[in-house]
Amino acid sequence: MNYSKLYKDTLLNDIVPFWEKNSIDHKHGGYYTCLDRTGNVYDTDKFMWLQGRQSWTFAMLYNKVDDNDKWLKIAKHGVDFILKYGMDENNDFYFSTTHDGKPLIQPYNIFSDCFAAMAFSQYSKASGEFNIRELAKNTYNKILKKKDNPKGVYEKSTGERPLIGFALPMILSNLVLELEDVIDEEEVNLTLDECIQQVMDVFLDKESGLIYENVRPNGTHEDSYSGRLLNPGHGIEAMWFMIDIGVKRKDNALIKKATDTILKILEHSWDPIYGGIFYFMDAQEKPPLELAWDQKLWWVHLETLVALAKAYECTGRQELMDWYEIVHNYSWSHFSDPINGEWYGYLNRRGEVLIDLKGGKWKGCFHVPRAMFQCWKSFGKIESLEL
């Protein structure tokens, strides 16, 4: 099968047009992300992390696919909204606003900062706007200052059970590569060193080969719900970030370790009865407290497709392609909507569509187009070698 053509055509003829047509707020700026099955807007609140993600997506497409002025204008649409409405007086990013930019939820979530920085970096590369480039750099520096206490005054825990979370070192390992043209090379390498150490030595459990979502600061495990929590999608997504770093550094040992981890997580988290990857799991197989634990989510499967494609591109291991075909067949037959466009986000354990939205508070214009782009490019290289 010509996977590269499938992913390219789907990206350019399905996914991108869906968001171009349905999400842009031409009156107030920014993007609507709450879109139903057919693309109609069902809620007008705007979430800053999704504004940043969509702006990044269109700037990335402009930079890496085609310097289409329409895409650059769409990217600017999001950047302008974030600049005008998305920040408080301290330049911290609100979590959400009304459709016309009135703040709704305070800046408690550092991921709004992360995706704003990514958007600013890609957009400045596309537009050449120096002030946006500097804003990307300043936002990144603020993220580093916040990383030991990401929520600041909005942190709810008392500190009695000190656990550190996987999400931030995971995203930093990708963010720093996104910003490597903006920040100093020394800073890039220092951050990458720290991310590799955190992801591969602290959160990756040497005994099981699985990534834990929360660990004690010294990397040991807490026997509690939070301490036993596994998020297979996070672990697998982080591994393709590690592979990207390994490629950049020509570090074959890191690529192999990341590849082995992808396979271990996938084997552990694949539903043996209905297929698909579980959303959450308990490391000791105790009852999970996450009520959505057995749902099958779009981003988990898309990130797995990217990880398997990159790992196979780098190693050529047949077991990766065997798994790729399993995950590909499940994902395309369950999430893709060939009638209305885009992908569903949420399935029940049996693989039936649970909520038929195409976008919401958590699903926006990011995982689907990014995965389509990444798989297109990986399989383009793989297929060229097979000719």
Rank of each mutant, 00 (worst) to 15 (best):
E134M: 14
L135S: 10
N138R: 10
T139Q: 08
Y140C: 09
N141M: 13
N141S: 09
K142G: 04
K142R: 14
I143P: 03
L144S: 04
P150E: 14
G152L: 07
Y154S: 05
K156S: 13
T158A: 12
R161G: 01
L163F: 09
L163T: 05
G165I: 03
L168V: 11
S173G: 08
L175S: 11
E178C: 11
L179C: 14
I183E: 12
L190E: 15
D193E: 11
I196E: 15
D201F: 06
V202C: 09
E207V: 03
L210P: 01
I211G: 00
I211K: 01
Y212R: 09
E213H: 07
E213W: 02
V215H: 08
R216N: 15
R216E: 12
R216W: 06
P217Y: 08
N218S: 10
T220L: 05
H221A: 04
S224M: 04
S224C: 05
S226N: 09
S226Y: 12
R228I: 00
P232H: 08
G235F: 08
I236K: 00
E237Q: 05
F241I: 01
F241Y: 13
D244K: 11
I245S: 10
G246Q: 06
D251N: 15
D251M: 03
A253T: 09
I255Y: 13
K257N: 13
T259S: 15
T261M: 00
I262Y: 07
K264G: 00
P272D: 11
P272E: 12
P272Q: 07
I273T: 13
